[in-house]
Amino acid sequence: MIERRPLLQAAAHLVLIIGVLTVAFPVWLAIVASTHPQSAFETGLIPVWPGDQALVNYGAMFGEGLSNLGAPPLSGMLFNSLVMALVIACGKIAISITSAFAIVYFRFPFRMFAFWCIFITLMLPVEVRILPTYKVVADLGMLNSYAGLTIPLIASATATFLFRQVFLTIPDELMEAARIDGAGPLRFFWEILIPLSRTNIAALFVILFIYGWNQYLWPLLITTDEGFYTIVAGIKRMAEAVDSLPIWNYVMAAAVMAMVPPVLVVVLMQRVFVKGLIETEK
C-alpha cells in the first residue's frame, strides 16, 4: 500500500483473520475433540471448547493403543515414524549432495548420461512407481523392515537437482584457489562446499523430514507387522473403525500426535528454512 487508507487496511486485516481461521479452525477442532470422552460425540453436537479428558485419552493411546482394532500404542508408531523420517532425510541429503558434487565439479565420460539418468526420475515420485517398486522390495525380502520403509524412498532426484542449483552459484574462483593451495577434491568438498551450503542443507532437511514423516501409502503396503506401523499408517487403520463407533476422541488424539513433530520442526527451523528457500530461488 502506498498511502494509508484506514478502511482498506481494516478490510485487509479482516480478510487475513478469516483466512487464518479457515486454516486453523479444523486443527483446533481436532485438538478439542481429543480432550473429550467418547460420549461427547454421541449427542450429535460437536464440542468447540476443550474438555477434561485429555490425560485419559492420550494416556490410553500411549499406553495400550486400540489393540482390539489393530492399532498398537502410539509410542511405538511415533518411534517408527521418527526413524523413517530421519533416515530418509539424512540418506537423501547424503546421496544427493555427493552426486551433485560429481556432476558439477567433474568432467568424466558418460557425465551427461548419468545426469539424465538421475533427472528423468524427477517425474517418477514413489506414488507413481508404487506397484513395480513394491515388487522389487518384496523380491528382496525387505517387507516389514526399516530398510524396506526407507531405502526405496531415498532414491529420488529432487534433492540432487537442488544441490546442483546451489553449487552452480558458488564461484569457480573458490575451486581454483583451493586447487592452487593444494586441496584435493575431498578436502574442497568437506571444507568449502559443505559449510557454504549449510543453510540449504537445513532447509532441505526440513522439507525431507516432513516428506518422510507424512508418507502414507508406502508404509501401509510395506508393513503388515504391527511392530513396524508408522503413526500415519496407524491412523488409517483406526479411522476404519469410526464407521461403526464414534471413537473420534482417540482418532483425533492420534491425528494430533502425528501433526506435532512436523509442526515442531518447521517452527524451530523457520528462520533457516525460509532463508534456505529464498537462496535457492535466486
Binding site: L29, A30, A239, M259
Partner: peptide, 12 residues
Amino acid sequence: VLPLIAVANIWL
C-alpha cells in the same frame, strides 16, 4: 506440513 491422512480425518 500436516500429514494428509490426519487432515483427511479432521475434514471427515
